[in-house]
């Protein structure tokens, strides 16, 4: 599958799950801020993609919940991401707007920086991408 096709599938899933217009969706759009997704919509988007592409997306793959729920104080302290936590998020969500997260590193903000491009990146890791 080509990357353009992945993007088309992701767009289709977003249109289905969020009832947004195709022209509202840009690679850099954030799911929650720009496209109005709520937490449960993320589950809907994941389900749509699994159904469309026959892939399996486990809990926490899209938004690294193990980082967000860290109780050891390594990644999270007082509900805020530590420097290590931000570095880990950067590694796991390479296209996300980390600058925004650095400005306000509250754990709850991890979800809000998730973009359409992140979604494509995650799907690309699950399918064979043609060069």
């Amino acid at each position: 599958m080509r990357k353009e096709e992945v993007y088309e599938h992701v767009k289709k899933a977003l249109i289905e799950a969020l009832a947004v217009d195709e022209n509202e969706i840009k690679p850099e759009s954030t799911l929650i801020g720009d496209l109005g997704a709520e937490s449960i919509d993320i589950l809907d988007i994941v389900f749509q993609l699994e159904k469309m592409l026959g892939i399996k997306i486990e809990r926490g793959e899209l938004v690294p919940e193990d980082v967000a729920n860290d109780k050891e104080g390594k990644f999270v302290q007082d509900n805020k991401l530590t420097a290590l936590g931000i570095a880990e998020i950067k590694k796991r969500m390479p296209y996300a707007n980390i600058e925004e997260l650095e400005k306000n590193p509250m754990v709850a903000n991890i979800k809000t920086i998730l973009t359409v491009r992140d979604l494509c990146y995650m799907v690309e890791s699950k399918v064979d991408i043609e060069p």
Partner: peptide
């Protein structure tokens, strides 16, 4: 049941 996941189901 179409999907049974850790965080919910469809």
């Amino acid at each position: 049941l179409e999907s049974v996941r850790e965080d919910g189901g469809v």
